[in-house]
């Protein structure tokens, strides 16, 4: 592992937390103002009766919006823009949706099992028209288990950066450089967990989340391919170009 001074770790924590807050799409205060308003039954039914392809398109648009914020987050992480452009693309292609899932716990209401979506809080039943009940259940379960860790914004920021800077992604050209950066971020995460007096198990729990995230993302890709096989023209003409670049 690289030797990093305490001052350097503090600086990294500061930079990454700031980047996270500047790019997190919704501030906690804003979410509170939305007053955790849930969709009413007839609104839920309206989503459920949308044609499958319309609901897919809506979700693709929402995911793409969230991903644009993650790209901004990545750009502000110390060292990310110093990587070669191939590796920047590789890391974002593999990790941006994972970070969206991590960030989801900020807009998730564990008590009601709802997530902020399209203006209100939505339960899994809102997404029924997608025809991916198993994936939706897993995404909600993941958000719930992330919430149960009660991470602070600092911890969430560093964990997001750790996920994004995964050195084991395929097709990296300068793996060693990514590895160094990820190790530094891990040290900063450990530093913050220690400072916040979190119990020892939290880091291990977060490590388990990394494999859960990979599984969620590969299942998203599978569902997309199945959808595309039936509706190739909808994907080609109606899905956001960035979404197609990332998952096509």
């Amino acid at each position: 592992p690289p030797t990093v001074s305490m001052a350097e770790l503090d600086h990294l924590v500061q930079i990454i937390s700031k980047s996270h807050l500047e790019t997190c799409q919704y501030l906690r205060e804003e979410l509170q103002q939305m007053s955790w308003q849930n969709f009413l039954q007839d609104e839920v039914e309206r989503y459920q009766s949308k044609p499958r392809e319309v609901m897919w398109q809506l979700c693709a648009v929402k995911i793409t919006e969230a991903i644009q914020y993650v790209v901004e987050f990545a750009k502000r992480i110390d060292g990310f823009m110093d990587l070669c452009q191939n590796d920047q693309i590789v890391l974002l292609k593999a990790g941006s949706l994972e970070v969206v899932f991590v960030r989801m716990c900020r807009v998730f209401d564990s008590q009601n099992n709802t997530v902020y979506f399209d203006g209100k809080f939505a339960g899994p039943d809102v997404f029924k028209a997608l025809g991916c009940d198993d994936l939706i259940t897993s995404v909600f379960d993941f958000a719930k288990s992330m919430c149960s860790l009660h991470l602070t914004e600092d911890e969430l920021a560093l964990f997001s950066a750790f996920v994004l800077l995964s050195a084991d992604r395929s097709w990296l050209q300068e793996k060693l450089q990514v590895e160094k950066l990820q190790q530094k971020i891990q040290l900063a995460l450990q530093h913050v967990l220690q400072k916040n007096q979190r119990e020892d198990g939290v880091l291990n729990k977060l490590r388990c989340k990394v494999s859960a995230l990979r599984s969620l993302c590969s299942r998203h890709t599978e569902k997309l391919s199945a959808f595309r096989a039936i509706y190739p023209d909808i994907v080609r003409t109606h899905f956001p170009p960035l979404y197609k670049e990332l998952f096509g």
């Binding site: 644009q68 901004e72 750009k75 823009m81 452009q85 693309i89 292609k93 170009p241 670049e245």
Partner: peptide, 16 residues
């Protein structure tokens, strides 16, 4: 590069 045109563009835009 052509394959990831938008991502390239987003990365090149200066951070606001």
């Amino acid at each position: 590069k052509e394959k990831h045109k938008i991502l390239h563009q987003l990365l090149q835009n200066s951070t606001s």
